[in-house]
Write a protein that binds this DNA or RNA. Structure first.
Length: 582
RNA sequence: CGGGGAGUAGCUCAGCUUGGCUAGAGCACCUGCUUUGGGAGCAGGGGGUCGCAGGUUCGAAUCCUGUCUCCCCGACCA
């Protein structure tokens, strides 16, 4: 590829809406352009990177025995209603009505359609296991797209779906994908950690996330120092806190006037206490009948909605409307408390942290008042038919698991694998005949990789002041030949020769034959991040030499013109060597 | 959806408070000359319904109203 007429698109200035390095560099290096909030066009260099990632993913899927298919992006709403995911996905689900009045979904993922494909094509246990995948655009109407392609409305996902006859086979299919994912990320040259994850609206019985550790990530990983445990914070368990010594003969509850003390900190200031002494009381509704749920937490703890969902058997609760809170507590928002409230609701979850308290403060269920000397067990029940003491909070600094300190870091989720079991196949009647001619429900798994996120994560992990430093496996080109003096005929001729020879050797090489000053071309080369640069210049050529520079190294080397191609070949091989798995 | 900020050339922004000459700069683009190893210099040039719609006014980028878009923060702490 010659750069003379190439739509390179490198720019010096960054649009002011790009915040994180990968987003800025993708724009500066001519990889992407924004079309609207959360939607991007890929320019020639950008789509080359996407294709390289896709090729790696495709190769690993094929090696793992998965078969590629292609599903529609526009899917009938009825299918989503059948599984109830039209509701579960909420407003993130993009949809439109066509001219016939039919409702259509813009596929955010494809369990439904793939289950139907599986159900139609698989009829016998003899066909199993089967794993089908596609690489296709997905659409999610994110409430707030940000960070460039890391959270965009449109993105490219590889989604695979396995079909098995029983749990043992499913476990094996799951493991095969899990291993394939490790190979994909290693080959793409991105560092990753695997963490236990919550299944979220996917449902199912088990899940792992593949996460690139990185400060700009939106996910929080919780792990132990010995790496025996790692989980997404949505899932991460914590040891219950030690039970406080019971106070002998605790004083009776006292009313405390705390006007306009909505936030916990303010109430604490009035009562001269700390959030850890407070009992926070949150009211939720859940399920089709809008049942009420009260959650009690220590004031310094964060509720974990995913844990609530698990305890409710997969139903995601929603925070109660102000109206309901006022009706239940007879008080303005901010003054809810457990005393006298728990028998008015359908269910109560009490976090271990609250159950362990000896005495504390809480809302009074009376506007502008809190109460002190609240003793769990004395002033409100901690056991009963509808009361459950459980882990319902986020892990936080200082928490332990199995006695080991929990540590935290941020990450970008680039892939996730789920054991779905029969969640979709049951609802969509995806069945097969077993050895005895009996109908059985197919067991499924699903496996996603965010192609664009691999691209952005790779940049987040590999850049410097001058631009991107691509791993060679996903770089837009492996090698760039450039001329420092494009008007010099001997220089051009030598560069041209090296370029052609590299092409003949199947090196993915580009030739910057633009009539630009050397500085401009060097800056562009660094910005775009091509791993190896060959520079032909008048000065060195007079000594019969050309320059070879590896992007991530600070020094270049000079070699004889005739050795250039071989040296480049060796460098390319060297860089690839690092990314070979097994 | 709530709070904050911003929409003026392809990009980054000034001008707006206090309305008034032909709406500006840098980068990018085109032409010419010079230059040619780390984003060159000089000269000339093209490019704008000042987000959109109303309104006030002799006169609006500037003031008022509405509206759209974009960005940031939040949207579970009762």
């Amino acid at each position: 590829m010659r750069f003379d007429k190439y739509v390179l698109g490198t720019v010096k200035e960054v649009p002011n809406d790009a915040e994180i390095p990968s987003h800025q560099l993708m724009i500066r290096a001519g990889m992407i352009r924004k079309v609207a909030s959360g939607t991007y066009s890929y320019l020639p260099l950008g789509i080359r990177v996407i294709h390289k990632i896709i090729n790696i993913v495709r190769e690993e899927m094929d090696v793992a025995g998965a078969q590629e298919v292609l599903l529609p992006i526009v899917q009938p709403m009825e299918l989503w209603q059948t599984t109830g995911r039209d509701q579960d996905y909420g407003q993130t689900l993009g949809h439109f009505t066509d001219r016939h009045g039919r409702e259509n979904v813009l596929s955010p993922t494809a369990e439904e359609v793939m289950t139907v494909v599986g159900a139609n094509e698989i009829s016998s246990y003899k066909q199993l296991p089967v794993n089908l995948y596609q690489i296709n655009t997905k659409y999610r109407d994110e409430f707030r797209p940000r960070f460039g392609v890391l959270r965009s409305r449109e993105f490219i996902m590889k989604d695979a779906y396995s079909f098995d006859a029983n749990e043992v086979m499913l476990e094996k299919s799951y493991r095969t994908m899990y291993d394939a994912y490790c190979r994909v990320f290693e080959r793409c040259g991105v560092e990753y950690v695997i963490v236990e994850a919550e299944a979220g609206e996917m449902g199912g019985s088990g899940s792992h996330q593949f996460t690139v550790p990185c400060e700009t990530g939106e996910d929080i990983i919780v792990y132990t120092a010995d790496h025996s445990y790692a989980a997404n914070i949505e899932k991460a368990a914590v040891d219950p806190l030690p039970k406080a010594e019971p106070i002998t003969d605790p004083a009776a509850i006292i009313d405390m006037h705390t006007p306009d003390a909505g936030p916990i900190e303010q109430a604490c200031a009035y009562m001269k206490t700390t959030p850890s002494e407070m009992i926070k009381c949150m009211i939720y509704v859940y399920g089709p009948e809008n049942k009420t749920l009260v959650c009690l937490l220590r004031g310094d703890h964060e509720l974990n909605p995913e844990k609530l969902t698990q305890l409710l058997g997969g139903v995601a609760p929603e925070l109660a409307e102000e109206e309901l809170v006022v009706k239940l507590t007879n008080a303005a928002i901010g003054y809810a408390g457990p005393v006298g409230l728990l028998d008015k609701v359908d269910r109560v979850f009490i976090d271990h942290g609250v159950a362990a308290m000896a005495i504390g403060y809480a809302g009074a269920n009376k506007t502008d008042y809190h109460i002190g000397n609240v003793v769990p067990g004395r002033d409100f029940p901690v056991s009963g038919d509808n009361i459950l003491v459980a882990d319902i909070r986020n892990a936080q600094e200082g928490d332990t698991l199995d006695g080991k300190e929990l540590l935290f870091k941020r990450g970008i989720e680039v892939g996730q694998v789920f054991k779905l079991g029969d969640k979709y196949s049951k609802k969509l009647n995806a069945e097969f005949l077993d050895e005895n001619g009996k109908r059985q429900t197919l067991l499924m798994g699903c496996y996603g990789i965010g192609i664009n996120r691999i691209m952005a994560s790779a940049i987040e992990l590999n850049y410097d002041d001058n631009g991107i430093v691509w791993p060679i496996s996903i770089a837009p080109f492996e090698v760039l030949v450039t001329t420092a003096n494009p008007n010099d005929e001997q220089v051009s001729a030598a560069a041209e020769k090296i370029y052609n020879e590299l092409l003949e050797n199947d090196i993915d090489v580009a030739y910057d034959d633009r009539n630009q000053r050397a500085g401009v071309k060097f800056k562009d080369a660094d910005l775009v991040g091509i791993p190896i640069r060959v520079t032909v210049g008048k000065k060195t050529l007079e000594n019969g030499q050309v320059e070879i520079k590896v992007r991530r190294e600070s020094e270049s080397i000079s070699v004889a013109v005739d050795d250039a191609v071989n040296t480049v070949f060796d460098k390319v091989t060297e860089l690839w060597q690092e990314l070979i798995v097994e």
